[in-house]
């Protein structure tokens, strides 16, 4: 179907974009890569009066190291993240996530900020930033604030962003030598949204897990940090017994709604499968995490 009528404007600077957003209010939608928004418009699920195109804003792109953090501009495309040497070495969880996101033609346009702000519960990057304890940077006309990733996703396609705010960047701690990470998902076809998936980051001492953050996607209305499973895995090596206890804990950690792929029981089963595979990948690979 064709999109409904709307106006379009491409501001030249972030300041101009923020002014436009404040002026137009809820009738405006921000257009970043457009890989979800333009599909939603084609379905007429959204009816904005104006699209403010922020995809070319220089303030929003690039990956830089700032102290012990990596700053990722919200407008950085998935493809750019996938070939970035700093992401590969310092934020390997995001590097692992990229090949799972849709297909090359979509990764060339889609942006990390767009994915986070859209907050699809089955998307990989929201789960990654929660696992990584990233800070999300939001700008408005009145200033800038940082939102913890764990507080950012407030429900189905909803976030802590206020009207008039633009997500400009995220800041992720640099992986240390004792960190490990893994991202595993199950999808019917390569590039599809996951039926169930997990992004996890762990800190090891020898073979002992000192801390772990398994964050599930496709299993709730937002990324879900599995506290019970984390507790079951913390304090020792990931033995069969501990993994079984972690999988059992998912019964209370997760309350997945059924969807087109299957009912809650199947989703719970898949959650256990991806958790077990992710722990195997994390311990088998020497890849440092983060």
């Amino acid at each position: 179907m064709k999109a409904p009528r709307f106006s379009y404007v491409r501001p030249a600077s972030l300041t101009e974009a923020l002014n436009l957003l404040a002026e137009k209010g809820p009738e405006a939608r921000l257009l970043a890569g457009g890989q979800s928004l333009l599909a939603a418009l084609a379905f007429r699920l959204s009816d904005p009066q104006v699209l403010i195109d922020i995809s070319k804003l220089p303030e929003l792109t690039g990956v830089t190291r700032v102290g012990d953090k990596i700053r990722i501009g919200a407008g950085t495309t998935h493809s750019a993240l996938g070939r970035d040497a700093l992401i590969a070495s310092a934020v390997p969880l995001i590097a692992q996530a990229i090949p799972h996101i849709a297909h090359p033609a979509i990764r060339n346009r889609g942006t990390i900020g767009g994915s986070l702000a859209y907050a699809d519960p089955a998307a990989e990057l929201p789960a990654c930033v929660v696992a990584l304890e990233a800070d999300l940077v939001a700008r408005s006309k009145t200033g800038e604030r940082r939102i913890k990733a764990a507080d950012f996703f407030t429900g189905l396609f909803s976030t802590a962003l206020e009207p008039g705010e633009i997500l400009t960047a995220l800041e992720v701690p640099v992986a240390s030598a004792s960190d490990r990470c893994a991202l595993v998902e199950v999808a019917r076809r390569s590039g599809d949204y996951a039926m169930a998936g997990v992004a996890l980051k762990a800190t090891l001492a020898g073979d002992r897990i000192i801390a772990i953050r398994p964050v599930f996607f496709g299993l709730g209305d937002a990324p879900v940090l599995a506290h019970g499973a984390a507790q079951a895995l913390t304090g020792g090596p990931p033995t069969g017994e501990r993994i079984a206890a972690a999988k059992a804990a998912l019964a209370t950690d997760l309350d997945p709604p059924g969807d087109q792929h299957g009912g809650p029981e199947m989703k719970r089963h898949l959650a256990g499968v991806v958790l077990e595979r992710a722990i195997a990948r994390m311990t088998n690979s020497e890849a440092r995490a983060a």
Partner: peptide
């Protein structure tokens, strides 16, 4: 490469 239907 891009999806032409997802680019204005």
């Amino acid at each position: 490469i891009v999806r032409g239907c997802l680019v204005l």
